[in-house]
């Protein structure tokens, strides 16, 4: 008895050490960015040589950065909404439908995950040129919707696959039309998957460079592209400060979205 519990305590210690190490590996780069953003030096270097908030002020005073921040939020929110509007109904068709070619359709819907984004970005640029569309925030939202939708689809299909159709049958037998059964029963039960998918879609949009790079103009520039452009000519810690701001925004929206979905999911 005592030997086995001693062993398990030892195992627990190893596991804790491992978790600590992994956390450090994952968080360390972030820590470096954080430290640099408060530096007093004019160039990015490590370890930092002092503490100041001047780079945060320079971010706020940089019109391109502030414009890109607004754009990124609009694009990320709009493309996430579109991804949900397309991905959730599509997941019902794929998870509940019985028709030939269903697996193929599912694979096709997920295929944009396998195309390198930079290739996809170039293709989009040509597509809009051929169709005669001017690049705008709409074309950007379209591009981000295409990469966000597979995440929503994937997580929604996963929950539906685990959820027996018996709940929908029960709702229908009790007088609910297909739409009401979906709205009152299926959708709340899918909330976990939808939430996860929405979070992914939001993140892949807000951090995306490869697609945005090709289809943005000076007016609809996004945060990562602004950072990318800035760093081609400057090497000061304001990009670190801007990255920290971006990270806080993402964290805020994810937590907010999760809360909202959770309270909406329980009626």
């Amino acid at each position: 008895m005592s030997e086995s519990s001693g062993k398990s305590r030892w195992g627990e210690r190893v596991l804790n050490g491992y978790v600590f190490l992994m956390t450090l590996v994952l968080a360390f780069p972030l820590l470096v960015v954080g430290l640099i953003s408060f530096d007093t030096a004019e160039y990015i270097n490590f370890p930092p040589s002092g503490f100041s908030l001047k780079w945060y002020r320079s971010v706020v005073e940089n019109p391109t950065f502030m414009l890109s921040l607004g754009n990124s939020l609009i694009v990320a929110l709009a493309s996430t909404a579109c991804a949900l509007l397309i991905g959730v109904p599509a997941s019902l068709v794929i998870a509940r439908g019985r028709f030939p070619g269903r697996d193929l359709l599912y694979a096709l819907c997920l295929s944009s995950l396998t195309v390198p984004w930079i290739v996809y970005g170039v293709s989009l640029l040509f597509l809009w040129a051929v169709l005669g569309f001017n690049l705008s925030i709409m074309t950007l939202i379209f591009g981000h919707t295409v990469i966000g939708t597979p995440y929503v689809l994937r997580t929604s299909v996963a929950v539906l696959a685990d959820m027996p159709p018996v709940y929908e049958h029960a709702a229908r037998s009790l007088g609910a039309s297909p739409l009401r059964a979906f709205w009152t029963v299926t959708l709340p039960l899918m909330a976990v998957g939808i939430r996860a998918g929405a979070a992914f879609a939001f993140i892949v949009s807000i951090v995306n460079i490869p697609i945005s790079l090709f289809v943005t103009t000076a007016e609809n520039i996004t945060m990562p592209v602004a950072v990318f452009n800035y760093m081609q000519y400057n090497f000061d810690p304001s990009v670190a400060a801007f990255s920290i701001i971006q990270m806080i925004i993402i964290a805020f929206f994810i937590v907010f979205a999760v809360r909202a979905a959770r309270s909406g999911g329980v009626s």
Partner: peptide
């Protein structure tokens, strides 16, 4: 109709 299922199928939410 009224229906009862093997898995009860009460709406968990």
């Amino acid at each position: 109709i009224g229906m009862m299922f093997q898995s009860y199928a009460l709406f968990p939410h």
